[in-house]
Design a protein around this nucleic acid. Structure first.
Lengths: 412, 412
DNA sequence: TAATTAAGTCAAGCGAATTGACTTAATGGT
DNA sequence: ACCATTAAGTCAATTCGCTTGACTTAATTA
């Protein structure tokens, strides 16, 4: 018997280091998973009868009946009118109750913060924004807590229960996080050093989670956008910086340290003077610089929209250059991830985003160019500037209600 | 109430399209998962007592006891001598029984095929190889079935039970799979068109699965190599072609169509004449061409080893060029995936691989260059030419015994 | 020698899905 | 108009696998 490498399966009796193992599970995990599966099925299919749910999830009618009854008692689903269709007893479809759960989403951007409240199905039920001091997080947090209190108050008006149904607060801000040299203008260094999550958790009493802005965009696309029900999608987000949100196997992928998809810092060639980070070329920051605009300008959005509609030559020039890099980025993403589709999202006004999308065509050949494709290789996602805040809010909802491996396991 | 995009959560009562949903689960799923967790814990930690297992998996002592008893009866684990350590009753460590399961791994390469039998802990217990006609799969399959029969016969000599304990046959061959134009010399077009898996399944009576060679390499690294117990690792495989095997969240990631990681076809710049596929520059095929060697040469391996040891100038020149591209590839991989480590593996002789690894240093700066790192950014994996076959065999073992989401769910 | 610590077993309990028979309420064929 | 058929959904008993809490065993330490 021989091993192909030096690393044999030698038996070491007892290690000093902590034991590495995944958690086990029990009936609670089973039940939690099945509840989540029901919710996801209703989210993806609109409304389903118990019999439909049983067929779709491979559970017995009886199990489904019990779970649906539970969910109904918890106010997460509601029965619609019975439907007669063909032979047999009429069926009673169930659908999700939007007011069954809420989450708060917080986007922290360079000069601006947005807060939204999103319900179980992804509708925005309250929103608020304010400008933010770029380098004064302690002041900024006060502003944020004020906005959160405001939307919470608004939420309280919706129903008496709604406060009880808040599942968490999701934060989205530019990454990457936790690096050595945070004196990088893309990363909002002052905010990264500040104990943001702890302060927000203490100030709101909610569970707080963090993602980068591209991840939030992908999360938003998955809950209410182009990635709805798609298990392998990459969301290319062109904002002030540029990054990719990765939906792999139906879940957001964050990497070993939460920085997966931060392609803004990717160098564009192996070496030498042409070796520029992607962020310096294909990002709105580069566009602002190209146009000599001040990123803090309050009318920036409208100005850009007007220039894009008018096909301003300087804008078109930037588009052409950026499109070249982005076209190649899509090629690389397709080659590396083999996704079902790539979604282009942007903080830019829609006319600009559309022109950018057009300029990226024709796409470079890649393995994505395969026979029998159904989804487009590249499609436009949302260009709503609130999308990141929505995605931030979608994360706690997804954590609470979507089927996922970790939800089955004990503890953690 | 408003939604940030056109895509509202409108309730459609009953769709014609099939209902999309994940499977539910039940106690069988629970139990299957817990068994797998035990096996993984023993694989990662060598030998553990029931009490250790209970602590590590968060299950109760009693549950662990029952499962261990089951596993012991099934011949998958065995008790070692009791150990006295500190106060309390001595504990009885358990370890995996290598002969508890076997799988056959098959590598199909351009001019060669290798077959191995691997046991539960990753030891190679039988091996065989033969040369293969590049473009005659129907003949080739006969040769392969002959080799498989041979190793199975050898396996039968190990124990009476061993044939019953064969969990499957894993195939590894160059990808990508299922593209439009399979008249590409890297992809072995004749083999891709041939109904290989069906023929092998019929000819062996075993479950058959397929991966590309880089994925197999990553699977091998995970079971017995540098990625053992690491949940986020990318395995960069430099063989005749080049590709990456992706271990994400502790599982191999294959993408939407099974072609994730096939970076050989990645273009090295956005456009223009410099836009070459990576495969044309950083692969052994390019080295053979650079040296004027015939890839089918039987002594290729020894020749390359000798040239590398002697620091042949032509080889060193290729190494320098390839290292530049690979250094950049590592940079991109780190930026995109944020893995805990990148593993360089190769079908090249070890001296050549070592020189290549050295030439890749210093690495380009990236987000992987973070404070508090424990693992090296880049490390050398196996250079054993049998590694791909081992990885091919490891896949069915992993499928049968490793904890994974899909193993909990009902049905297939 | 007695107290303490820890591994591991025993037996009853419990939660959640399964099973199979049953009820309800439609449609479609004669 | 009637009855067989089809399908949704319920009822009650069962089963399966983890949990609970008390108990046993066997070592170390004071």
């Amino acid at each position: 018997m021989q091993s192909f490498n030096g690393v044999k399966g030698e038996t070491q009796v007892h290690d000093i280091s902590p034991i590495r193992a995944k958690s086990g599970t029990n009936q609670e995990g089973t039940s939690a998973h099945n509840r989540r599966v029901m919710i996801e099925a209703l989210r993806l299919n609109g409304a389903l009868s118990r019999a439909d749910l049983a067929r779709a999830t491979q559970l017995t009618k009886q199990a489904v009946s019990n779970i649906v009854e539970d969910l109904e008692r918890d106010g997460l689903v509601v029965a619609l009118d019975a439907v007669r269709k063909g032979r047999g007893q009429p069926f009673t479809p169930y659908r999700l109750v939007p007011e069954g759960a809420f989450a708060i989403g917080l986007q922290i951007d360079r000069h601006l913060t947005r807060v939204v409240v999103v319900d179980l199905v992804g509708n925005v039920v309250a929103r608020a924004e304010a400008s933010l001091p770029f380098d004064q997080p302690s002041e900024g947090v006060e502003i944020i807590l004020g906005l959160v209190a405001r939307v919470r108050h608004e939420l309280a008006g919706i129903s008496a229960q709604s406060e009880r149904r808040l599942v968490g607060l999701g934060v989205a801000m530019p990454g990457p996080f936790g690096l050595k040299n945070p004196d990088n203008k893309w990363m909002m260094p002052a905010w990264q050093q500040f104990p943001l999550l702890e302060t927000l958790a203490a100030g709101t009493g909610l569970n707080v989670g963090l993602q980068n802005d591209a991840a939030a965009c992908a999360t938003a696309e998955r809950i209410v956008g182009a990635a709805h029900g798609i298990d392998h999608a990459v969301c290319l987000y062109v904002g002030y910086g540029i990054a990719a949100g990765l939906i792999l196997n139906g879940e957001l992928y964050s990497g070993g340290n939460g920085n997966a998809g931060e392609i803004g810092m990717a160098l564009l060639s192996p070496a030498g003077p042409g070796s520029t980070p992607l962020e310096h070329r294909a990002s709105l920051a580069s566009l602002y610089q190209h146009l000599g605009l001040n990123p803090a300008d309050a009318n920036l959005y409208e100005k850009l929209a007007a220039l894009a509609v008018a096909a301003d030559p300087k804008v078109m020039g930037w588009i052409e250059d950026a499109a070249s890099d982005l076209r190649w980025s899509v090629h690389l993403i397709e080659t590396i991830f083999d996704p079902q589709t790539v979604i282009l999202t942007s903080g830019a006004p829609e006319p600009l985003a559309r022109r950018l999308l057009q300029a990226m065509h024709p796409l470079l050949p890649s393995i994505a160019d395969r026979p029998g494709r159904r989804l487009p290789r590249l499609q436009l996602g949302t260009t709503d500037p609130w999308a990141i805040a929505v995605g931030a809010a979608a994360e706690p909802i997804s954590r609470a209600f979507d089927p996922r491996f970790s939800a089955i396991l004990k503890a953690g």
